[in-house]
């Protein structure tokens, strides 16, 4: 895997999906009967001011505050929204040689990327680019999935995702650090890029529920009909009141 962050652009995502497909040995012929779903996640309501996170320790390196805007839009299109198909499952391989690896880096006292997606059986590789100790504590609900220290110049650590769900990433030392990895039991998932676009490939034909999750906007669900052939395009719009919830 490249030594880069897990920021998901369309290209990188497509690359990962291609990697998953290749490495996990998906029956492409079986999957290819489905259609790609593309679209945008839209929010045109008021954008709340960014969070000013107070730095409690290591201020010399991290600074005294970290400004963070979890709701980033471009012309009404929302970045870092996770779009997935509900109720679908796919056989997950446990063959470690075919695991996709997602990079989660502690850099400048921020997890990069903050929002990621993964599939059960994939690995998360935790790295530390900062000249100080970080601990990366990933929980599924109240249960620790992994809690590891990586010291300055420390070696990366990999952990296999065994259960689907929303993994919350924190650092117990730096309580202002937070991120999420949404793990699924299937590959029908995408995260919106900087322009708010997403694409989910090879969705089997039929009536499905499309689910959108965003850190501050919450969850939206909508039904979608996928034909045997041809593209599906959909724009999913959060109501204006979503930020006041």
């Amino acid at each position: 895997m490249p030594d880069s962050t897990m920021r998901i652009t369309v290209d990188i995502q497509l690359a990962i999906l291609a990697l998953v497909i290749v490495l996990t040995g998906y029956d492409v012929s079986a999957q290819s009967i489905g259609a790609p779903i593309t679209g945008r996640v839209i929010f045109q309501g008021p954008i709340p001011p960014p969070n000013e996170l107070k730095v409690n320790i290591d201020q010399g390196f991290c600074g005294t505050t970290i400004t963070h805007q979890p709701l980033q839009t471009q012309q009404g299109s929302v970045r870092d929204a996770v779009v997935s198909i509900e109720g679908l499952t796919a056989e997950v391989t446990t063959d470690t040689t075919s695991q996709a690896v997602h990079i989660l880096t502690n850099r400048q006292c921020v997890f990069r990327s903050r929002i990621g997606i993964a599939q059960v059986g994939d690995q998360i590789e935790i790295r530390n680019d900062d000249p100080l100790m970080h601990n990366t504590h990933i929980r599924l609900g109240e249960t620790t999935m992994v809690n590891v220290v990586i010291v300055k110049n420390g070696r990366p650590i990999r952990k296999t995702i065994q259960t689907p769900g929303m993994l919350e990433v924190k650092c117990d030392k730096h309580k202002f650090m937070q991120g999420y990895v949404l793990a699924f039991a299937h590959p029908y998932v995408s995260v919106t890029d900087t322009t708010g676009h997403f694409e989910i490939s090879h969705v089997p034909a039929g009536l499905h529920t499309l689910r959108v999750w965003h850190e501050t906007l919450g969850v939206l669900e909508t039904d979608i009909e996928v034909p045997t052939t041809g593209d599906v395009t959909i724009d999913i719009k959060y109501p204006h009141s979503s930020t006041s919830q």
Binding site: T144, N147, V148, V149, V151, R155, I157, D172
Partner: peptide
């Protein structure tokens, strides 16, 4: 090993 469930992390990588 650290103490999973508590903040004490694993220092194995160190």
């Amino acid at each position: 090993t650290g103490l999973d469930g508590a903040p004490m992390p694993s220092y194995a990588s160190a």
